[in-house]
Design a protein around this nucleic acid. Structure first.
Lengths: 334, 334
DNA sequence: CTGAAAGCGCTTACAG
DNA sequence: CTGAAAGCGCTTACAG
């Protein structure tokens, strides 16, 4: 800015005025300054600018997610970005990779950058930091997961994991199955816990008991899930139906069922959408989520708070139903 | 910081020392300050900190991409993030959605935030801004695309789009096909242009001519591609093989081939990996890319420059071969 | 071991 | 219409 002022032969205050289009500057000087700006390739330093500015429109929001490479989270990010962009706001995103400690680190890093607001797929690991930030007035929205944090009431946007799992399980029961196996993420994960709970509830509600060998959980890539389910299907006493509670698990199951030649034998319903669900044979029946929409909703809620909306925390729990495509409608063979 | 100093009853310089772990502070004061920090939930403002700091480790890099919701770009981002994280660096990412003008906007916004470096999937739209930034010493790496910008020599990391397309086309030719249709992204896109060029070259090299009705291009979602290819397959004079030059196009083609009952009739090779490529029947033969690896390479190259490495621009052009899974090995029926 | 001064690049009041 | 001063929240020299 100093250089530009020197180049244009004016005080740097005048440069500031031109750059900000404040007016009250003679056209002659404006031209001069603009020429200098262009020549030196000058771009104002937003950090310094925001440092001094008292009230400023939000310029950056932070998004803590688990893994951008997972299509669920990348669509969540896309939805958030879409809303943020329309408000001239950037999104700082960071993956925790499921490492609980990284959630706290990322939240702290974002806070130190003075993001205007935070959207977090939280395990509750950043509870203390989030609490002090919320006290200070930084809005926070939880998305996908809804950790219980004492003394902290936070807006949340998520799918109704439990109801979705119940719908999926009942869909299988309705087709005559009584021996259903569950494959899902580590129950330490909020959404996975609720989906497992939904599965158990629906089975119990139908008067069916579920052996522990019918619940396989853990956090794995879809390649790993392919192997795990493939081995499971090689064992004796096969279930007549399976419920896979997450997109990676569903991908693994489709591969394994195809590999074992059981795709027309064992019924299968998944949670989360996958590409080509309608192109494989049979089509994969599943309970879809719309992550992009969830992201949009979370961001809109965040901006509402940034715009000054007060009031108690808002919970948006989005329900979803089974889309029947074939795999979930295979009847039990008795 | 002022409040913390008051709370602890020391000068704010002492607080600064404690927060930065500079040492040379009596244990008694350290304890006091730490208590005050904890009580007030104080977090240093990185923006102010970086403003004053003369030499500082890179803290943020910017990544301009086309669409995070596309699995190719989200994996690119993941690879970049992985490397950035290991250097305590955050990634600001923004989607252009294919709008050329947004590339310039995003680059400028990032520059104004004083990102340490930039990784760009560029159309060349931000040429002027990039040039002045590079002059100023901000390292830039192009990934996936390699626009020609006069007077600007920039590091690039990308797949060998042309060679991959040639390999895919020849794979089909080797199975007896002479009538191959091409479906791909808008040739205004760098990678799409090179893939189309590769297809044409391979056909011409084999002495085959390609009618204009055998080249279908445009930027569409995979739902749209499904419809486009589905309609194409309903017309007369079907090709005996198709080459789909991008992941969305490949997804659309698989759906359309299945829908039309032509999946065992028309040979198909794609560019880019897709989920379930090995689970559909027949498996989808394709030329994979490893976007996460491309992202890692781009970020490593950027950090090398940030670490002070000089020298001419480095071009990493990654080759790839056809993975045969069935769809590409269907022989031409004469 | 601790503090008062100057400055990072800008903006927000105040004068002229 | 233009500029000299003070300050945003911090750090980097310099004193005591």
């Amino acid at each position: 800015m100093r250089d530009v002022a020197a180049e244009a032969g004016v005080s740097f205050k005048t440069v500031s005025r031109v750059v900000n289009g404040e007016g009250g500057v003679s056209p002659k000087l404006v031209t001069k300054v603009e020429a200098a700006v262009a020549q030196l390739g000058y771009r104002p330093d937003q950090r310094a600018r925001l440092l001094r500015r008292s009230i400023s429109a939000p310029t950056t929001i932070g998004f803590v997610l688990v893994d951008v490479a997972n299509i669920f989270f990348s669509n969540l990010l896309r939805g958030i970005e879409e809303v943020a962009m329309s408000r001239q706001c950037l999104v700082l995103a960071g993956s925790t990779e499921g490492v609980v400690e990284r959630e706290r680190q990322l939240v702290e890093t974002f806070v130190e950058r003075r993001v205007a607001g935070l959207i977090v797929v939280s395990w509750g690991a950043a509870a203390d930091t989030l609490r002090s930030e919320v006290m200070r007035g930084t809005p926070v929205v939880f998305v996908d997961a809804e950790p219980e944090i004492p003394d902290l009431d936070i807006d949340v946007v998520r799918s109704d994991h439990r109801a979705g799992a119940i719908a999926a399980t009942r869909h299988l029961l309705a087709h005559g199955h009584t021996d259903v196996a569950y494959f899902g993420d580590d129950p330490a994960i909020f959404s996975a816990r609720l989906r497992l709970a939904g599965f158990r509830w629906a089975m119990a509600d139908a008067g069916l008991s579920v052996g522990s060998e019918r619940e396989v959980t853990g956090s794995h890539s879809h390649q790993e899930w392919t192997d795990i389910i493939d081995r499971y299907l090689a064992s004796t006493l096969l279930p007549t139906a399976i419920f896979t509670a997450q997109n990676f698990v569903t991908l693994g199951a489709v591969r394994a069922l195809h590999h074992r030649g059981l795709r027309d034998v064992i019924a299968h319903v998944g949670f989360d959408d996958i590409d080509l669900a309608d192109a494989v044979t049979p089509g994969v029946s599943l309970v879809p989520q719309d992550p992009r929409d969830l992201g949009r909703r979370a961001a809109l809620q965040l901006f509402r708070r940034l715009d000054g909306e007060l009031g108690p925390a808002v919970r948006q729990i989005i329900a979803s139903e089974v889309i029947a495509r074939g795999s979930g409608e295979i009847r039990a063979t008795t």
